[in-house]
Structure formats: C-alpha cells, structure tokens
Design a protein around this nucleic acid. Structure first.
Length: 475
RNA sequence: UCCUCGGUAGCUCAAUGGUAGAGCAUUCGGCUGUUAACCGAAGGGUUGUAGGUUCGAAUCCUACCCGGGGAGCCA
C-alpha cells in the first residue's frame, strides 16, 4: 500500500534559487506570469517564484490542495503546478462572507488569491501568503467531492483516477523528473553531433521479429503495425547524417504484467555510422552519467519529495562495471543461479548479477542465438554477438540494449534466412549494405525504466502521465 | 498463456459460520498557528456477479468478471 500522496506537507517552493538556470534549461516551475491583473497592478506570480516578492501583494492562481481551519483562522494550501503554498486567512481581517467561503472551500476547487507574501519559518517552503481577497473560479460541490482524499488509496483506485492523481505531490515530482530526463537525453545528443531524425510509428513489419506486434487496419485491406523500435530506420538515417537518434513511443504487445513493463513506452535510439561495440559502450555510459548529473543538479526538491536516496544515484556516476556474458554466467553460477551458457538472463538473473553493485554493469558478447538477426558476430568468436546490455542497480533491470550491426550484405542475407524472415520486407534495409556499407552501431534506452530508477519508484507506471498496460487503457 | 494474491460504506481496512464495524471523506457544531491538524455528533451497505452447501454465509464450495504481484518475453 503506497501511502497517499494526495496531500502532504507544503511546497518545495524554494523560491529565489537559480535552480535549473545554469544550463539554460526551461524550468516549468519557475516562470511567473508577471502581467498585471484586474487593473490593480498586483502581479500574478507562480508559487515557485513567490520568495522574490516578500513583503509585496501578489496574486496566485491555483487549486485548493488541502485546508485546515481553527475557528477564527484557516489555512488553505494552494498548489499551482509550480509548488504549493500555505495561505493564512484570519477572520478578523477579512469580510465575513469571504472568510466563510474560504473556511468551507472544498478540496481541488480552483481559485485566485491575493495577499501579501511573508517569510515564515514554520512553512515548509519558507513563505506564506496572508490572504486579502480571493475569487473562487469553480467550487467543487460537496455532493461530489474530489475523490483522492488525503489518506491511503489502493493502486486500482488511483489508476482509475490517473487524470486527477497527476495533481498529487509524488506524481507531480516523478513527471518533473521525467521532464528533466527527456531534456537531458536530448541535450546530450544535440550537443554531441547527433541529429534528431524520428522513425515512423506505423511500420510494415516487425523490426526484430521476436516480440508480438499491435496490428492495425490501414487502407485497402493493408495491415500495418505499431513500431516496436525505430532502429532499422536509424540505420538508414545514420548513413545519411552520420550520427542520429530517434526518440518516441514504441509499442510491445507482450502480455507482460510486471513493474517493469508498459505496452506503450518511450525509447531513445541513437545510431552511429563508422562505429562499433566499444562506441556504444562509451556513448551509453556518457549519456547515463550526463542525465543522472542533470537530475541530481536540477531536481533536488523533486527527489526529496520522492524520498529518493540520492547517494545511490551519486554512486552510479562512477565508471560502470564491464563484463562479458561468459563472465556473467560464471558469476551467476557462483551465486547459485541455474543459468546455462547460451540462454538469456531472466529478471532474477539480472537482479542477482547487480545486487552487489552500486552502479550499472555493461554485459557484452551475448550468444548470437539469443540476439536479433542484425547483430554483428564477434570477430574472434562467431557464436557471440557484438551486443551489450546495460543493467541498472537496485533491481531496475536492463535500461540499455544495443550493439554493432551486421554491415556485410551476404552475412545479413544469411541471417534473414536463418531467422525465417521474408527478404522482400527488408529490401530497403539490405540497400544500406549495398551502397556504402560501413560498420555501424547503436542502442536503445527505455525512458520509463530510467526514470523509475532515478525516482526510486516501485513501478514504471508512475513515470508516465497515462500509462498503457496489459489490462489498463483508461483514462 | 501460466502461477499467485485479492474484491466488504466514496476511500483504506476489520469482522474465520451466528445482530456488518472503525478511521478518513461528506454534513453540522467547537477551536486564532494548523502541518495527512484535532475534539464532538449525524448520514452513509443487495459484502464483485451467478449458482450451491447450511437452521443460518462477507466467511465454506463451483463457475465467471475485475484488479494486484510474478514467470515466460522484453526496454
């Protein structure tokens, strides 16, 4: 049972800090609309910025997060998306009607409040707003109160109310961390010579042929599928631009119902021409360390809300562990696993492999038989593929999978045949081996698993606003 | 697909075969510093659905529906 985060202590307002600005990042929590309101020359400010207005009259616009009252004084907590601030309404200082309205206001009613900003040591965010006037925009009726009350709720109920649950403090924090992760990923690639070239979402056939695909009716009896990876297209764009990445949703019709699975998730997939397995390992490690550093620098408050042990993330910034599949099998057997050489790791194996590590491990040179058709064989050992998986610590599992692709036409044709894949569907892909074929490599990183790891979440469903899962497609 | 756990008030749960309860939410009352505020009172139930066993079923049995966790597969 997750404790409800519907209501909790007041805002990480942390006003006046320069958080997020060193990188020139756009911070969704720090831009105040400074327009004048109602001809009264009172600035409308966001809660995150309120510390800059100490001693001044301001207006905030938001929703009632929680309310406590004590006879002749009441404390409406207002959230506005940038933070939460406690307001103070004193009966003797306000028109009776206004005080009564506030005292009996219902949770999540929308309102605008004008008042004076005051530093307050007792407030979690360091500031309070002394109410001078208020406008209720929409009052939530008592007959149908806001369902997510400030107590415990079950996951089924919360997921049914996901559209409202997003307003809760922990969910809000997790999605802000996701925002930072996505921004960090893009900044990393954009500043390292990669060009964003997105892959299509409707695809004519399997990219890998292994996982189940979602099938759709296209026009004139044609079937198309929702993409499960943009990789094959990435190989084409890498030959056009040198280094590219695609970043978008992918779909897996696997009937997986675990804390690590969604049927729709976001994946970033870089692809590099004139590159090999070692480049994948280098870029993947740089990317992860870059993004972790960003999150640690810019999202301290959110990590605090999420009660994330940041020392674990700091430790993960050290150089990653590296081992071959052969070495991993030896280690697993020594730890009691039943694993046999030639089979892929299950989740229990992944956890076993990393439970004594404080940072990700890169496992490379898997048996070719368990990898997709396009993996290049190791030159010194043809039964091993030049693929690598990055396995995160703390049981978060595989967060990156990738490797070097076959660039030899004849070998690729042989592999298509071995995997019983129809050559016609891959003609365009084979062209890439006919016209200036070069060694090339790339990988995919699943955003939700990465965000779950950053946030220390139990389940990937809380890392995306509206998760799509085996038995849940609403709201 | 398989294994496993669950479904009782708006929410979270209790009640192990004998009168269906508590906390929160809602309403009313009290309180000038509350931090998931607190105190008092009230309203609120076809126990997931359909059968069955029994004098008697939330409780035991069968089927189905819905959901949680996991396996396989995967990021």
């Amino acid at each position: 049972m997750a404790r409800c985060d519907g209501t909790a202590q007041a805002a990480p307002a942390c006003a006046g800090t320069a958080r997020g600005r060193d990188h020139g990042t756009s911070d969704p929590r720090s831009t105040s609309d400074t327009r004048q309101t109602g001809g009264l020359m009172i600035p409308r400010v966001r809660v995150a910025d309120i510390g800059r207005y100490e001693g001044q009259a301001v207006q905030i616009a938001g929703w009632l997060y929680n309310l406590r009252s004590s006879g002749k004084i009441c404390f409406p907590q207002v959230r506005d998306g940038s933070g939460i601030i406690q307001c103070v309404a004193v009966k003797s200082a306000l028109p009776e009607e206004l005080f009564d309205t506030l005292k009996h206001l219902t949770q999540e009613s929308s309102l605008m409040i004008q008042g004076k900003v005051r530093a307050e040591a007792r407030a979690a965010g360091g500031f309070e707003l002394d109410v001078e006037s208020a406008t209720i925009v929409q009052r939530v009726p008592e007959a149908a109160p806001y369902p997510i009350t400030p107590k415990d709720h079950g996951i089924d109920f919360l997921m049914d109310h996901r559209h409202l649950w997003l307003r809760s403090r922990r969910q809000h924090a997790a999605l802000i961390v996701r925002h930072e992760v996505v921004k960090g990923i893009r900044d990393y690639f954009d500043s390292n010579g990669f060009v964003l070239v997105d892959a299509p979402i409707f695809t004519p056939a399997a990219c890998e042929g292994t996982s189940t695909l979602f099938e759709l009716d296209y026009f004139e009896d044609e079937k198309v599928y929702l993409t499960q990876s943009g990789q094959l297209y990435g190989e084409a764009t890498a030959a056009a631009f040198g280094k590219t990445y695609c970043f978008g949703p992918v779909f897996r019709a696997e009937k997986s119902k675990t804390r690590r699975h969604l049927t729709e998730f976001w994946m970033v997939e870089p692809e590099m021409a004139f590159a090999d397995l070692e480049d994948v390992k280098r870029v993947g490690e740089e990317l992860i360390r870059f993004v972790i550093t960003r999150v640690l620098e810019n999202r301290k408050e959110e990590l605090k809300v999420l009660e994330r042990d940041v020392t674990k993330l700091e430790a993960a910034c050290a150089p990653f562990h590296r081992m071959s599949y052969d070495e991993a099998v030896v280690k697993l057997k020594a730890k009691g696993s039943e694993i046999q050489w030639g089979t892929d790791f299950g989740n229990t194996d992944e956890t076993l492999l990393t439970d004594d590590l404080d940072r990700p491990v890169m496992v490379d040179r898997y048996p070719a038989a368990v990898k997709a058709f396009y993996f290049a064989p190791a030159p010194e050992r043809a039964d091993c593929a030049l693929g690598v998986d990055f396995i995160a610590p703390e049981g978060y599992g595989e967060i990156i999978g990738g490797g070097q692709r076959i660039h030899d036409l004849d070998l690729l044709l042989k592999r298509l045949e071995e995997h019983q894949l129809p050559r016609e569907a891959f003609e365009w892909y084979l062209d890439l081996r006919k016209y200036g074929s070069v060694p090339h490599a790339g990988f995919g990183m699943g955003v939700e698993r990465f965000v779950a790891w950053m946030c220390g979440l139990e389940h990937v469903r809380e890392t995306t606003a509206f998760p799509r899962m085996l038995y849940r497609t609403r709201p």
